[in-house]
Nucleic acid binder design. Structure first.
Lengths: 240, 240
DNA sequence: ATCAAATCATGAAATAATGCAGTTTTTGCC
DNA sequence: GGCAAAAACTGCATTATTTCATGATTTGAT
């Protein structure tokens, strides 16, 4: 890419990140033509979201699939009385909003940035047009989307049939294993959000984390968490 | 159909129910050729399951999609320690095992007959062969399968973030609304199964049902349940 | 029809979880 | 840096839930 192009390119169509190294492309490019990918790219828009901003809003209609390029998001269910439930937390890279592709276009829940995010919004009609002409590509998309459904169902199972101790152990293990991928991490969620995720009161999260800290299972100091005894945490998760 | 044919047909290939009035056909026949449906029918097998029998077994691999023609089933998750959780209850007509179609062939959970069932087992590879050549049919299948995913997620949401009162109210309302479709019904589930569905102890189910009975919300006498005050039950469900 | 096993039911004690009131700490903003 | 607001924390009273012990009832097998 020439220096001149680098200078004027942002004026034409600013790119927050390169489409050539985009994982969505890497995952699926083996199945579609460069020309098809180029068209997708042309008609996609890259957007930044600050922590706390809505990426998709529950109840709104969408015509876009969101590829989360960078950041961490929560799936948020808001009920009539204003109570929030967090269905799951996901980090980039991830394809979100898949439920809308094959079913209906009204968002079942909100997607909110938990950390600053970079996203790519892909037009669903265009994507479908390409997918319908290409079985392998279609199947790949399906696999990604049903895989996400599956994950969130498994998430729920662990939450729905355990007591708070086990649920909080689950949440911590999930965050360590799937989000931060380390036994030592700095939470991007508040205690209130942890409570919305675990389905209990904020106080209960605080009490339980303090207890785990007292018992040496975790080291908790404000947002910083270290898992000292993963085995015991897993045991608590197992027995519920 | 001639009388002679009726006499010998069972010897050739016994049919528990007619394929021509099968809802799976009615839902999808508008999109596929009669010859395609005939082949599906040829290679499908009809089976009966008694109450308590496994239709699909968690952890086993399947190459068949199950169309539930008659009866009520539960989706059962069995953990290492032998604890059961009921994910959801579904009645005929319903297409089950859809998760296996696009993802992988290992059953995430068991499917067990809660009442005597009649099922039709459809070969997934053959179904896919037909679907891949027929966009509309494919989309229809997808809609059915993702719709089921969606329903079970919504089911969970209501269970995961409520207290036992609300969860049991939910379970009763779900059974009345979606399974028995009446305010007065005879349970095919035991108290233990209700507990596995609501995610609480068996005693808690019994206590709560007795309380609802005492308060005039329900009339409960062993397996027979009458909802006397749906509004109050709904309110309990809402406030959790 | 009878017996054993499973299910249903009840109450009481122990444990778990919530909600509240009040305090400290952190965060964001001018 | 200082201030206000939000978040984090603590202990305690209240409520919810489980667990256990016990007995009644129902179900299924022989």
């Amino acid at each position: 890419m020439s220096k001149l192009f680098l200078m004027i390119e942002p004026l034409l169509r600013p790119r927050l990140f390169s489409c050539d190294t985009c994982l969505f492309k890497i995952i699926t490019c083996q199945f579609i033509k460069q020309s098809e990918f180029d068209e997708l790219q042309q008609r996609s828009s890259q957007l930044k979201f600050k922590k706390g901003e809505y990426i998709l809003k529950q109840g709104a209609t969408t015509t876009h699939l969101v590829f989360l390029q960078q950041g961490i998001i929560k799936f948020n269910l808001e009920d009539e009385s204003g109570k929030n439930s967090i269905l799951t937390i996901t980090k980039a890279p991830s394809l979100i909003g898949g439920a809308n592709v094959f079913y209906e276009s009204i968002n079942m829940f909100s997607v909110v940035a938990v950390e600053d995010c970079a996203c790519c919004l892909i037009e669903i009609p265009l994507l479908m047009e390409i997918a319908l002409g290409n079985t392998q590509y279609f199947m790949k998309l399906l696999e990604i989307i049903t895989g996400m459904f599956k994950t969130s169902i498994l998430n729920f199972i662990s939450l729905a049939h355990k007591q708070v101790n086990g649920r909080i152990a689950d949440v911590i293990l999930y965050l360590a294993g799937s989000i931060y991928q380390s036994h030592s991490f700095t939470l991007s969620l508040s205690r209130k959000e942890l409570a919305e995720f675990a389905g209990c009161s904020t106080e209960n999260v605080i009490h339980t984390l303090s207890r785990f800290h007292r018992e040496g299972i975790l080291t908790v100091s404000s947002k910083k968490i270290i898992i000292n005894d993963p085995e015991r945490l897993q045991k608590i998760s197992r027995i519920g």
